[in-house]
Design a protein around this nucleic acid. Structure first.
Lengths: 348, 348
DNA sequence: TTTGACAATGCAAGCGCTTACATTCATATT
DNA sequence: AATATGAATGTAAGCGCTTGCATTGTCAAA
């Protein structure tokens, strides 16, 4: 029969719920129920359906499912960049936690560009995200409005601001950095320079700098005179900035860096300039990424529980989706890790 | 009017194509054409529609679109893990390239578990992936069958095997490692130990080890006596493995590691054991990740053009989707980077 | 003026699923 | 025996979009 032949050559079609229904001898509704609310169907029927599913290698079409159910079991996240280890780590934990609860992660990266974030949010929502994870609070009001209008459960991570409209899970960047800087000042430093990530559109970086300033003021340093340079996140940029700072006359005795990556760059610059760390120069970071331990000497920094943060954010979000109640913000503790790059100020 | 009030309180609904059509005074078909094939609509109409879209903040529902168009402009990738810098980097480039061409990336990570991969592939296809990026060739036949049946354009990266059914873009792991090991032997080493990632289900790791063996044989070393230990990818594991190898009697003069991360761990172990590198002990890596430069001394390794690989994979895949022709595999060149951890074998 | 061709648009089917509602049937209750 | 109950399943509407086909209107050629 020619017909058969034609049929066979027809390009493969992924199995649909109809195929499963036919094979199992039930209606599509029953198949659907088997997959979504198994207790509603008779055990015998269930077995038949499950077998049919397995035999055909059936997987429900996601788009169709989202459309019909108005629920995607997908949670979106917009992060600045995946190349930053702290986000990669937190996100990994976030993902694992979601996965364990039957949710899927959809990521977009904004590359620290505020305008991109709005567009990406729309895209993620169009893709059916049931909830959103955002990093930090710094963004236009329209984004929050959009989230509120559409009633999308949202969590902000890496910052902590209990008074804000949207719940957050993170830590107090300002307080943590202030405490750390106090600790640094106890080592007798008076000439301090700061290398920070760009503070515009980045409340975490901004708050850390604010923490440094407060501490400086408390320690009798003229805040106006504080040398602060802002550079984009990279080892290279950290090194360059440090090099500039260290070759100026009256060089600082300590380089307080806004994050570990910049600090590692600074460390490299110091090495190139033959400055001994911490004897001639102290350097500090923030975040406690893997690199901080590997560095030689080990980087003195502030430990941030990134994984824990990701995990908690996931749980909070899931709870919000499933119970539609607004949870409390959660504050995480940071911890000073004093390795080898912070020493007493040289007495010279 | 009570009605009005009720209407206002009704929960927000994302704007649909109908809303846009109504506002612009056209049919939904025209709106759709405006978005997908703009030249088919009258410029004046187009303007009206575009304005309506902007005014409503309309974004086409992705699921509906995929269902109707049978095309998602989404490309899937299954990678072992994002926490491995080489994949993160390659994937970032892959993503950027896709983005520039109007495609979106959908990632899943298999955590090096073969059985997970099949499930994830099904998920990605159910989500409408138009094409797939896979890492390495090691996987069950059913996966390839599924891809072929459904006619999903596929590329394998990080490996290169021109004779394979599916096109690849990558490099010859065995040849590269063999050449590198030859180079190592030129430094007079006779007692070499190998720290590799697990070779089961990982053709890249396996081929690198094979390359080492071939080189060893060529250099008159009994391959049977080669100390090879396999550990999971992490600095910690690399350190532990190295520690074991270095504290055994008759310790090796060079540790050839399957990747940089393990090598960095080995470096740490050597430091802990007060062995000078490279005077007392040589250590080599593979991949040339950022850490390799930062390490002190800098890690001698093999540079792999991860970004380039990601970029090319993306272009190939896009071409396959758009022209449905099968392209040639592409081979990339690797390069030995001799930094500071490879020295002459100690003469003791 | 009539006709044909073509550009611009509308109509409506259908993509694969979920779910409210209707139906059936076995069992418990009176 | 008659009826109520509820568990199991089926029927069919509709989610928001694309696209083949039909319709309309315009303009050039005959």
């Amino acid at each position: 029969m020619r017909r058969e032949h034609t049929k066979k050559r027809r390009s493969f079609r992924a199995p649909t719920i109809d195929d499963v229904a036919k094979l199992a001898g039930v209606s599509t509704a029953t198949v659907s129920r088997c997959l979504n609310t198994p207790d509603m169907v008779n055990p015998d029927t269930r077995v038949r359906v499950i077998n049919a599913v397995a035999e055909l290698g059936y997987e429900p079409n996601f788009g169709a499912r989202v459309m019909a159910a108005k629920r995607s079991n997908t949670i979106g996240a917009i992060i600045p960049t995946m190349e930053n280890a702290i986000f990669a780590r937190g996100l990994q934990a976030f993902q694992e936690e979601l996965d364990q609860n039957g949710y899927t992660l959809l990521v977009a990266s904004s590359s620290y560009q505020a305008d991109l974030e709005k567009k990406q949010l729309r895209t993620l929502l169009a893709r059916g995200a049931d909830a959103m994870l955002l990093i930090g609070f710094a963004r236009g009001e329209e984004i929050y409005d959009m989230l509120t209008d559409r009633q999308v459960p949202t969590i902000v991570a890496w910052s902590y601001k209990p008074e804000a409209q949207v719940a957050s899970v993170g830590f107090d960047n300002k307080a943590a950095m202030r405490e750390f800087t106090d600790f640094i000042f106890k080592h007798g430093h008076r000439k301090v320079a700061v290398i920070s990530a760009p503070t515009a559109d980045n409340d975490r970086a901004a708050e850390r700098v604010a923490g440094i300033k407060e501490s400086a003021a408390d320690n009798g340093i003229d805040v106006e005179e504080l040398d602060i340079v802002e550079v984009n996140y990279s080892i290279e940029n950290g090194a360059r900035a440090a090099h500039g700072l260290l070759t100026s006359e009256d060089r600082p005795t300590v380089l307080v860096c806004g994050n570990d990556v910049l600090a590692i760059g600074a460390l490299k610059a110091a090495r190139d300039l033959k400055l001994r760390v911490p004897e001639d120069l102290s350097i500090t970071g923030f975040d406690d990424i893997e690199l901080a331990q590997i560095a030689d000497p080990g980087l003195t920094t502030v430990h941030v529980p990134h994984r824990e943060m990701g995990r908690r954010a996931a749980n909070l979000l899931i709870k919000m989706v499933e119970t539609s109640q607004t949870p409390q913000s959660e504050k995480l503790a940071t911890r000073i890790v004093n390795r080898g790059t912070l020493g007493m100020a040289p007495t010279s």
